[in-house]
């Protein structure tokens, strides 16, 4: 066994439902609001909060095998690759030659981590739960690419950034994980402490396109 500690932070017990859960954008929505889409809106923004985010470290071969066992998914075959399951609910993104980001529906991460640890056995690997530390923003609409061009130095032209690609890059003066799960949609994985800055930046960059926030 890897002899690491897994900490299940799921809320359980009779009063679990009374515990307020706040996403990284809770304060931003409170302070900056969430403008509604208008008739001429060409970009929309949406937070997909409370998903399960796991950082997987290890060798590609063993991790790939374990993931196929546990989730029926393979690691992306190439650097900067992003794969999803058929429902689009689970995704695995290449982050580094020995690092992948696995995102699953919220709550599922504990079970997945446990089963992965079992499947990986004595292999050298690490799994870190980072679900509370980051959130996922979706950017959609014909102006999404222009908003990104105002924000990231990375080339987001479809020839250079096809569907199924993901990168970590500089976003304004912060950084994001930027990914393209489908033709129309871009995803930004944002660190909690930078979420407010990123949100305000996006509202500002999207102003000329009548950005709307879906809640």
């Amino acid at each position: 066994m890897s002899n690491a500690q897994q900490f299940d932070t799921r809320l359980v017990g009779e009063h679990a439902g009374e515990i307020a859960v706040e996403s990284p954008l809770a304060y931003s929505m409170h302070r900056s609001g969430a403008p509604k889409a208008k008739a001429d809106t060409t970009v929309t923004l949406r937070e997909r909060a409370f998903l399960g985010h796991l950082t997987l470290r290890g060798g590609a071969i063993v991790l790939d095998e374990a993931l196929r066992d546990v989730l029926g998914m393979s690691l992306p075959g190439e650097p900067l690759g992003l794969v999803q399951d058929e429902a689009g609910e689970r995704s695995i993104q290449w982050m580094s030659p020995d690092e992948w980001l696995l995102i699953v529906p919220g709550g599922e991460e504990f079970d997945v981590e446990r089963r992965l640890r079992e499947a990986l056995g004595d292999a050298h690997f690490a799994i870190s739960n980072v679900s509370g530390g980051q959130t996922l923003l979706e950017l959609e609409g014909e102006a999404a690419r222009e908003v990104l061009m105002k924000s990231v130095a990375y080339d987001v032209h479809p020839r250079h950034f096809p569907v199924g690609k993901g990168v970590t890059t500089v976003f304004a003066k912060a950084s994001v994980i930027l990914r393209r799960p489908s033709e129309e949609r871009w995803e930004l994985v944002v660190r909690r402490s930078f979420a407010d800055y990123t949100y305000r930046w996006l509202l500002d960059a999207g102003e000329e396109f009548g950005v709307g926030v879906e809640r």
């Binding site: 190439e78 650097p79 900067l80 580094s96 030659p97 130095a153 990375y154 990168v167 890059t169 500089v170």
Partner: peptide, 11 residues
């Protein structure tokens, strides 16, 4: 050499 593409200096 790990990402396999050119990236901006600020990264």
């Amino acid at each position: 050499p790990y990402c396999g593409e050119h990236r901006e200096e600020e990264e």
